[in-house]
Structures are given as C-alpha cells and as structure tokens.
Design a protein around this nucleic acid. Structure first.
Length: 215
DNA sequence: CACCAGGCAAGTA
DNA sequence: TACTTGCATGGT
C-alpha cells in the first residue's frame, strides 16, 4: 500500500477508535486564539485554568485584554506557565488586532489564507503551529497543523524524514489527505489525543514518547 | 527525585 | 543554516 492510502487509513482508524474530538475546545473564536497562544509547550489542563481566571474576571474579550495592564494579565494566566512571556505575546497579538483590524477578529479573518498567515506570523510570539491552529480552528480555513507529536509519530513510522521541517511535514499531509477543513481539524486533534493516551512510557516501538528508544 | 506538556524567539557558531 | 537556551506552572 502506498503512503497516501496508508495515511488516509490511519486517519480512518484513529477516527473509528476515538471518534470526534470536537476541537478546538472553547466557546468563542477569541477564546480559541488565546488558547492557541497559551498552550505553547504547555499542558492543556493548565491553559484551562488560565482561561477560567479570565472568565471569572469577565476579561475574556479583545477589548478587556487590550485595556488590561500587562502585569495583571500575567497574573491571571499564571497557571499556564511562562506567564510573563505569554502576557507579552497576548498583548502583541491584541495590539495588532486593534492597530490593523479595529479590534475585530472578523476583520482579521476576512482575508485569504496566505495573507492571514503572514499577518499572524508577523506577531512576535506567534510561530507556525500557533498561526495554523488559529487559521484552522478559529478562522476555519484549510491548513494542516503540525505539532511535536505529528513529526514524532510520522517520522518514526517512516512517512517523513526525521529531519523534516514544519513546512515539509505540513506539505506531506496536505498533499496526501483526501479531505479538507473537517478532516484537518479532526486529524490533528486525533494525533494529540493519541499522544495523550497511548504513549507507552519509554518502551521500544513507542512512536509517541519523546525519548527515542532503539527498536 | 526526574521528566514532560497541543512552542517561540534570541543568541551562538 | 543549524543547534542551544530561557521561559514556568502543574501533573505523573
């Protein structure tokens, strides 16, 4: 079986096993954008605590975050880790949103995928994965999100080179998956679900744990 | 105790 | 271009 068929078969099996993942968790596009920045190298449980702090403080809106002093913002998102850094990153994004898009996500998202990606990447603190997460899960445009699990699993299973870059990995998925936004959404979520639940804890042949063991 | 979690940018060679 | 390091809380 060729790579393309195998890749689509893997998606089918993951979906059959785990079912729909209902990503991105969150009740608004703004919450998704914040979550995307807050979850950088951080457990989602900790991100939820940070978002709950903002909810409890009735601060979960672009305007509220824009008006909030950065020190106060940092304190509220503390459970998400790297809180000083992430407070800056949130501010960087919000400042662009107000400077260029009148504080409206709908205005930011009202451009083609390439232009939107460039806009997001221009923010200090938004890299490729965060940008693509926002594009796919908040703007609903077709881009495949690549994360550490994706590279780890699919390089160890020889779909891509171990040295594959973000762009190369993304290209492989987007050129070989038969589906579109719906499938990109579910596939990335399923890969994360797989990583969360099925790492074999450093056993040989585990394609999920971060430590590379000889097989 | 060690190690990791849905990265990113800045510094170094 | 290709590493290395700082950032930080909370769970296992």
């Amino acid at each position: 079986m060729n790579k393309k068929k195998r890749l689509n078969e893997i998606y089918k099996r993951l979906f059959s096993y785990f079912g729909r993942q209902y990503w991105w968790p969150g009740n608004s596009k703004f919450e998704i954008v914040l979550g995307a920045i807050l979850t950088q190298n951080t457990n989602w449980i900790n991100v939820e605590k940070a978002i709950n702090n903002l909810k409890k403080g009735k601060a979960l809106s672009a305007k509220k975050v824009f008006d909030m002093p950065i020190d106060k913002l940092a304190l509220m998102i503390k459970p998400a880790g790297y809180f000083n850094l992430k407070a800056k990153r949130l501010k960087n994004f919000i400042n662009l949103l107000f400077a260029e898009y009148a504080g409206r996500l709908s205005a930011l998202f009202n451009q083609d995928l390439t232009a939107l990606r460039q806009s997001l990447l221009s923010v200090n603190g938004i890299g490729e994965e965060t940008a693509d997460s926002i594009i796919l899960y908040a703007a609903g445009l077709p881009v495949f999100v690549v994360d550490a699990y994706t590279k780890r699993v699919f390089s160890r299973h020889k779909f891509i080179a171990h040295s594959a870059s973000y762009a190369e990995t993304q290209k492989f998925f987007m050129e070989n998956l038969s589906g579109n936004v719906r499938m990109f959404n579910e596939f990335h979520a399923l890969i994360v679900r797989l990583g969360k639940e099925f790492c074999l804890k450093n056993k040989p042949r585990c394609g999920l744990c971060p430590i590379r063991r000889k097989v």
